[in-house]
Design a protein around this nucleic acid. Structure first.
Lengths: 121, 121
DNA sequence: ATGTTATATCATTATATAATGATATATTAA
DNA sequence: TTAATATATCATTATATAATGATATAACAT
């Protein structure tokens, strides 16, 4: 029996996963959260987030490549803004979801949560 | 000037990023997509997705730890289902977003997209 | 008890990727 | 032109994590 046909389109899934990966890193998510308040230059983002300038630029490039943010040069400054308000909607929905599952996510034993556990034992 | 206070709560951002990481892997996203059609046993998920059994179990554990899916044993079988319909809402919103930014995400030059590029040159 | 099936866990390997420091590019001003 | 500022890119390192194969556990049947 060929199960391939039961699968949701693999290509579509990869693309969707990639979209979520834009949100799946704390530094990028922090940048996105800051940009919810309006456009900011790279320097402003560096100052607000406390991340290094190359790190901010790298994450912004990732977000821009995936069209999650738009860039706009003004003289020496380059301003970034969210490309679509649906990003905010998705974040709002996820916040609602989190308010219910937060405990589970917080206690999640896999991945980088191990880092946090070091402080608790 | 203390910029720390301008930051969205770092703890909250980490938790939110972790939630999105549940969606940010193609294998996990495929499992979630399949579960949108109703609860499935591990064996069914293995057959439908074509992933190895330990790999499915690992991803399910990740999803269960983060409360994105619920498990329920029935004899030898363990059935998994989505824990909350908001998961589906978030996916729907992201699909809408993707329908506009898909080209950007598809062309994204960072991360695993490099793998896909190998085929095109 | 033994055998079979279903699922989970463990140890390992390979890959992806976040972060850093150094450097390059671009813009403006003097 | 040179200097200063803003941002991007490159090369490297360290870490995170996806996948695998082997094994363990659990439930049921005989």
């Amino acid at each position: 029996m060929d199960t391939e046909q039961l699968l949701p389109d693999e290509q579509a899934i990869r693309i969707k996963a990639k979209l979520f990966r834009g949100f799946a890193d704390p530094s990028r998510l922090m940048l996105i959260e800051v940009l919810r308040n309006g456009k900011k230059s790279v320097g402003e983002l560096v100052e607000i987030t406390g991340l290094s300038q190359p790190n901010v630029s790298n994450h912004l490039r990732c977000l821009a490549d995936c069209d999650l943010v738009k860039k706009e040069r003004d003289g020496r400054y380059i301003y970034y803004r969210l490309s679509d308000m649906r990003i905010t909607t998705i974040l709002q929905k996820s916040e609602q979801l989190l308010s219910e599952v937060a405990k589970g996510v917080y206690d999640c034993t896999r991945y980088e949560s191990a880092k946090e556990l070091e402080n608790n034992e």
